[in-house]
Design a protein around this nucleic acid. Sequence first.
DNA 1: ATGGTGGGATGCCCA
Length: 261
Amino acid sequence: MNSLRARADRVEAWLQRSDCDVLAIQETKCKDDNFPWELFERMGYEVAHFGVNQWNGVAIASRVGLEDVERTFLDQPSFGKAGKDPVQEARAMAATCAGIRIWSLYVPNGRSLDDEHMPYKLKWLESLKTHAQELVTQDPQAQVALMGDWNIAPFDEDVWDIDLFINNRSTHVSPPERAAFHAFESAGFTDVVRPYTPGPGVYTYWDYTQLRFPKKEGMRIDFVLASPALAARVTGASIDREERKGKGASDHAPVVVELAD
DNA sequence: ATGGTGGGATGCCCA
């Protein structure tokens, strides 16, 4: 989702409706001081948030335990324009919830193919993959979820018109971005949602502009990648497209994964 | 005309 404070009422209603145990949020667009802690407490969730300014911001809410909170992953790249101090952005945090290591991830957008944010995006993903791989190498039984806004459409069917994207030299579909995503699959992580939500025409994000949602012109860019031990427990998944409707909707829809006990 | 919508440390930057 984006902008948590502007949609606090929707989040509360969605928690009520979905009855989910763990919620990972990205692009909260607030700092810890402004975070609506009481919303989650009222609903019976523990919550941790990582936000340093009005940009980015990630959170994890859980009613099945929230332990070992970690802000940024090991060796997470910083971003800084020439002449400015590099900053480690609030784009990744982890917590262990009921034995599952949950990573709430807001992958850098990239902005354009020749922007300095694109190499940053690729390096960020490579570094995250190294860390994730390490977790399953250390413990092959580890249950790890890498979830959030990946800002990549891994397959042609994940956008409404691939030719338009290619002709426009758009981000999210370029070979280096897709390779960075598929590297997680090579490292043993699986997209556990796609088998339950086959495309084409299945998306998690619709731009606010140009009537993209009513025209069904979206992108599948939000994913839950699971380690082998976690993937084995998945019994279902869905994309709550209804939540994209109505006044005050986020431009992303919630992605839901169900697990066996 | 090409960010036309939406939110934030708002009169600009980010997606």
